[in-house]
Design a protein around this nucleic acid. Sequence first.
DNA 1: CCCTGATTCGC
DNA 2: GCGAATCAGG
Length: 160
Amino acid sequence: MSWTDERVALLKKLWVEGKSAAEIAKMLGGGLTRNAVIGKAHRLKLSNRVSPIQQNNKKPQAPIKVVDVKKPAAAKTIKNRGSGVQMVQLRERMCRWPHGDPKEPGFYFCGDEIVPGLPYCDEHAKVAYQAPSRSRILAAEDFEREPRPDYEDDLKEAAG
DNA sequence: CCCTGATTCGC
DNA sequence: GCGAATCAGG
């Protein structure tokens, strides 16, 4: 793949919209890497997007104030694990165990490494799946044989 | 360790 | 011109 007019146009558009280089690379496809995108953006002199590092000038989007995320005692009650992550930085492999009220500014997720197949880290998985019913044990054995991404039912069941 | 953009430099 | 490697920072 090369930089056709269309792809350059799309690059410009997305870049200006504030998408990250990695995101743009994926959207453009063709096996482009974020480096390629950045490099191209550079040559196009699109670099007016202030990198997070150079100076922390005004960002184009919402400033997402990280309001003083003090780790509540509850966080350490379970264990001193989980660095505590904001929703925006939550990744696929991060524990989704919530801390605090989602309506409150200091809300965050555990963020620790998850147990494969579960939305939680090992510690929180224990809490979430306490005293498993017989059916759950069977289900658990199931995704030990094969990873099962659709754990939504378990979430509902555990919550309810 | 996950991420961000910036820069360099051989191709 | 291109982009991987590297750098510098969150």
